[in-house]
Computed example of a mutant assay.
Amino acid sequence: MKKLLLFLIIAGAAWQIYHHRVQVTLGPGVTVSELPQQTSIESPVIHSVDGYAIQEVANFAIKAKVLSRENYYLGREADLSPVDLALGWGNMSDEAVLEHIEISQSGRFYFWRTASLPIPRREIETHSANMHLIPANAMVKKTLGRVRKGDLVEINGSLVNASSTDGWRWRSSLTREDTGSGACELIWVESLNIITP
């Protein structure tokens, strides 16, 4: 049992190192000009997943550049969302801008820093976000496993709030204007396409 656990840890670490080294480069220029689309839901659906209730709160669609990805294996959130993607659109999809910004993810947060702002701070804040992805089906989960930093992706689904009977709750942000704790989108992903040229 110890050998199996050690093997799994080593294999997981090797996969993480390999995956983080693989990065798509598209060159300078805005690659995604569209803003994320969010619309109200007239008759919200509640999905049941492994004892969690997933309630839709808004329809959501986004085309974006993957600025970073982080896999999660531990914690209740990982039961639902094994991957977070930090996504950018507008000038935050331009590699000429992104080369001046250091981006990282940890603890379900997305962080950025720069020695000199290549675009206004508020534009960085409102044109990028950390998104927690809940795959709605096996195809989405499989595609999510292939997403690389630098890819262009299209995501369709809904923003959701998750809960369990013991009082645990996880809520989605409903705006791209917020920052800090609670500003991440929690997405029930019904379709995910990698559209990198």
Rank of each mutant, 00 (worst) to 15 (best):
E185P: 05
T143V: 15
R169I: 15
N59M: 12
S173D: 03
S43E: 07
A162Y: 02
V160A: 08
D166H: 04
G107A: 07
S163T: 09
K142S: 15
V22T: 14
N130D: 09
E70H: 08
M1H: 01
E190N: 14
S158F: 01
K63M: 11
T25H: 09
R169Q: 14
I101P: 05
D166G: 06
I54P: 00
H132Y: 02
K142D: 14
K3I: 10
K65Q: 02
Y73G: 13
E154W: 00
V97A: 12
L98G: 14
I124C: 02
E185Q: 09
K149G: 07
S163R: 14
I103W: 10
Q37S: 15
E190A: 10
A96K: 12
Q105C: 08
L133K: 03
E34C: 15
I10M: 07
F111M: 14
R69L: 04
Q105S: 11
L67Q: 07
I101M: 05
H19F: 05
A129I: 09
I62W: 03
L98C: 12
E123Q: 11
K149N: 11
L192S: 05
I119H: 08
V97Y: 02
R176T: 04
K3V: 08
N193T: 14
G107D: 13
S81R: 12
H100K: 13
R69E: 07
F60T: 05
G51T: 05
L6W: 11
D178G: 01
R171K: 04
E154D: 02
A61R: 11
L26R: 12
V140D: 09
L85W: 10
E77N: 12
E154K: 00
L186S: 06
N130P: 01
V83A: 12
M131L: 11
P197K: 07
W168C: 06
S116G: 06
D151G: 01
L152A: 01
R148K: 08
D94C: 14
G182T: 01
G90D: 15
R69P: 02
W188H: 09
Y52T: 08
S163G: 11
G150R: 00
G27S: 10
W15P: 00
I124M: 06
P36R: 05
A11I: 11
M1W: 01
R148N: 03
L35T: 15
E99T: 07
L67W: 07
Q23F: 03
S164Q: 09
A162F: 02
A183R: 03
P28S: 13
P197H: 03
L74K: 14
I103Q: 04
N91G: 15
E95F: 13
S173V: 05
V24Y: 03
A136S: 13
T143H: 10
E154I: 07
V57I: 09
L4H: 03
P44N: 04
E95S: 15
R121A: 12
V153R: 03
P120V: 10
L74P: 06
L26A: 11
W188T: 04
G27P: 06
S164L: 10
N130F: 02
V30E: 09
